[in-house]
Simulated assay, not measured.
Amino acid sequence: MASHSHAHKEHSGTGLIEAARDSLIASGEQWTGMREAVFAELAKHERPVSAYDIADNLSRARGKRVAPNSIYRILDLFVANNLALRVESANAFLANTHPGCQHDCIFMVCDECGEATHIDDDQTSRRIRDLAAGCGFSARRPVIELRGLCKACKG
């Protein structure tokens, strides 16, 4: 479903965690135990997950409370370093399965089941960035989301 102009490798499982670690370290950031735990929890989910859900799951697993504010800071770092994707309309996050490969994602978010599918379309992204530049606007991170029903829910 991706429409990009170059090949990129989709990672999963421990390979995804290792790729995220390598990408974060390459960007000059540290890969801490808490960052690994947050990324591993995020990577378990196929649908967007909130910082509160991650905090609750990690709190249960660790036997002590993990503050959602700490999770938000880590997730913001992950988004800034292209390790996670933020679904703005749901205030939720997905692990980027191809860390280190930069795209402006187009999300299709199902209002019924919450599934968020992303499409990488470099042509559309380039056009939106060009439109912004034509208005004198410097786009940092375009967010494109389509709300509706996924194939399964529209039946």
Rank of each mutant, 00 (worst) to 15 (best):
R86P: 00
R86C: 02
R86M: 02
R86D: 03
R86A: 09
R86Q: 08
V87C: 02
E88P: 02
S89C: 07
S89K: 10
S89I: 06
A90Y: 10
N91M: 04
N91L: 04
A92S: 12
A92P: 00
F93Y: 15
F93M: 02
F93G: 02
A95V: 03
A95M: 01
N96A: 11
T97R: 10
H98D: 10
P99T: 08
P99A: 07
G100S: 07
G100M: 02
C101Y: 14
C101W: 11
C101Q: 13
C101R: 12
C101V: 04
C101I: 02
Q102P: 07
H103M: 07
H103G: 12
H103Y: 14
H103F: 13
C105F: 05
C105Y: 07
I106Q: 14
I106L: 15
I106W: 10
F107I: 06
F107G: 08
F107Y: 13
M108H: 14
V109A: 09
V109W: 09
V109Y: 15
V109I: 09
C110E: 03
C110S: 03
D111K: 09
D111W: 00
D111H: 01
E112R: 06
E112H: 05
E112C: 05
E112Y: 04
E112N: 06
E112S: 12
E112V: 04
C113H: 06
C113A: 04
G114A: 00
G114Q: 01
E115A: 00
E115F: 01
A116Y: 04
A116E: 07
A116F: 03
A116C: 09
T117I: 09
T117G: 05
T117E: 12
H118M: 00
H118N: 08
H118A: 04
I119K: 13
I119N: 14
D120Q: 09
D121Q: 13
D121P: 03
D122I: 08
D122Y: 06
D122C: 14
D122E: 14
Q123R: 09
T124K: 06
T124S: 11
S125A: 15
S125G: 15
R126A: 12
R126H: 08
R126K: 12
R127Y: 10
I128D: 01
I128E: 07
I128S: 04
R129E: 12
R129L: 03
R129T: 08
D130G: 05
D130F: 05
L131N: 13
A132E: 10
A132F: 10
A132I: 01
